[in-house]
Design a protein around this nucleic acid. Sequence first.
DNA 1: TGATGATGGTTGCCAAAGTCAACTAACTAT
DNA 2: ATAGTTAGTTGACTTTGGCAACCATCATCA
Lengths: 148, 148
Amino acid sequence: MTLDAQTIKQIRDFNRFYTKILHLTDRYHLETQFTLLESRILIEIDQGMTSANQLGQFLNLDKGYMSRILRRLKDDDILVEKPHDQDKRIKVLNLTAKGAEILAEINQRADNQIQTIFKRIPPKDVDQVVANMAAIQATIRRYQSVRD
Amino acid sequence: MTLDAQTIKQIRDFNRFYTKILHLTDRYHLETQFTLLESRILIEIDQGMTSANQLGQFLNLDKGYMSRILRRLKDDDILVEKPHDQDKRIKVLNLTAKGAEILAEINQRADNQIQTIFKRIPPKDVDQVVANMAAIQATIRRYQSVRD
DNA sequence: TGATGATGGTTGCCAAAGTCAACTAACTAT
DNA sequence: ATAGTTAGTTGACTTTGGCAACCATCATCA
């Protein structure tokens, strides 16, 4: 089931192209004061991540570093923590009202970024692109093992 | 030509999925002595980037920082520079033999990463995925302005 | 119960990464 | 010639991130 060289080349080419398009390598995310990492943390907390440890595992971050980032976000009144009911070691994270606002702002900008990229493309072609994306996603998902 | 909310959502959903699958947001470039940035520089030089300035623009890097990274790569005998024929300010960059070897190693590892992700997928489906990627790339490229 | 080991999180210390501004040398245009 | 740009370097920083030691809590089990 090994891929031939040409296939790999095409996939890697797409990856380079797409990461560039999304500005994934830019230092600041979407021209906010927040880094990509901070944005992702807010997003993941909003999506249900509840503790520093969960976030650290998911985002693959050193726990010391994680602790510091969260400290900053707490100092800036973007999130709060309260002790976990059952396990007092765990601090449950939640966005503050301000944090929710900021997240909304980030989402708005992310939406705008997509608009900027796709607005020149005729609707029919956009639909085709979206269908292709969905197909890629479905295929990879179908054969994905739990462990990676 | 504005996209509807559902379309944007689907695209962003794909983006999150794909960046996660490819570990595109990981900060570690596993098991080489080189950082992701150094790897990208070698790749881009190999792909035809010729000067610090070009690289800096493309990779969106501070020129001071760029200068230092290149200094290190030169000290390590990974690349060399020679003056540009017409413009003596410009230093034309080239990989050394050692640099080419290292690039080959980096490419090998990147290829392996792709293998790991796609090896469970039947060849027919992989071909379909690759075709979808190519289609996405072609469509976006076709309507892309020079400025973003 | 209390010893042992694992887990969630914090902190100090440090190296690597990245920023910013000032600077030189070479180019371009008038 | 002069003025304004551009390619690249350097010094002086700040930020990011990695590592290990540490504390508090939890879980297990004799």
